[in-house]
Amino acid sequence: MNLTVHIEKIGRQTKSVIEGYGRLSIMLFHAFASIRKFHLYFGQIIEQFIYIGRRSLPIVIITSIFIGLALGVQIGTQMSPLTPAWLEGGLILRSILLEMGPIIIGLILSGRVAAGIAAELGTMKVTEQIDALRSFAIDPVEYLVMPRLVAAMFAVPALLVFADFFGILAGFVSSYFTINLNWAGFVKGMHHSFYVSDVFASLIKAFIFGIIIVIFGSYFGFNSRRGARGVGKATTLAVVWASVDVLMLDYVISAIMFFI
């Protein structure tokens, strides 16, 4: 193969990715526009909130505990003997609040929720259940995507609160065993570098990641090809692209927060 063939291939793939983002944006816009009819789908919204929130809670807590523990060790061992130990409280607080908490949530839920949505909607697509909705004049985006979207906009920030809480607590436990930092010192450190705006930044990230996870899961589910392999592929694509976009937007939001 010569160079032009490769360049052509890259060009084609870039084009289809951009087109994909275009179609996904249209779906997102459509889902947002149908929020005005949320009262018709109250039951679905609650059901999805429970599905997304409660079912992901254990895994979110477990992973944030381990991340907190690891962070405590890392930061503890990297602090020089000259810096006061209590500073670690603040470092752990900010790392978890601003980066680790939202990223854990974003990635865990990409694997769990985006995949689940893609598999469920993909199965509905290939068994013509989505066409059946349309044939009865029920808008599939309004009925299937919007409730999940609204639920995630509340459930994901709620999960983040748990992730932050357990992550920070584990960070303390781990600092206690690594550099012998006591609770009073840890709190002093947290107090020293606590900004309310960090909490907002953290929640905004979770809110946006919730949207990403639902829209990628839905988009790939709706575009699933026939057969079990089609659904499997849709699920994989949803996880991969949701994860990539979570990390990309994590950076974008962090950068925006830094500049304002």
């Binding site: 068994t127 013509e128 259940q129 066409d131």
Partner: peptide, 15 residues
């Protein structure tokens, strides 16, 4: 669609 309904080959009930 309000005056028409389709019975799908595989039924397509919402499972």
């Amino acid at each position: 669609r309000p005056k028409m309904a389709l019975v799908f080959q595989e039924s397509a009930l919402w499972d």
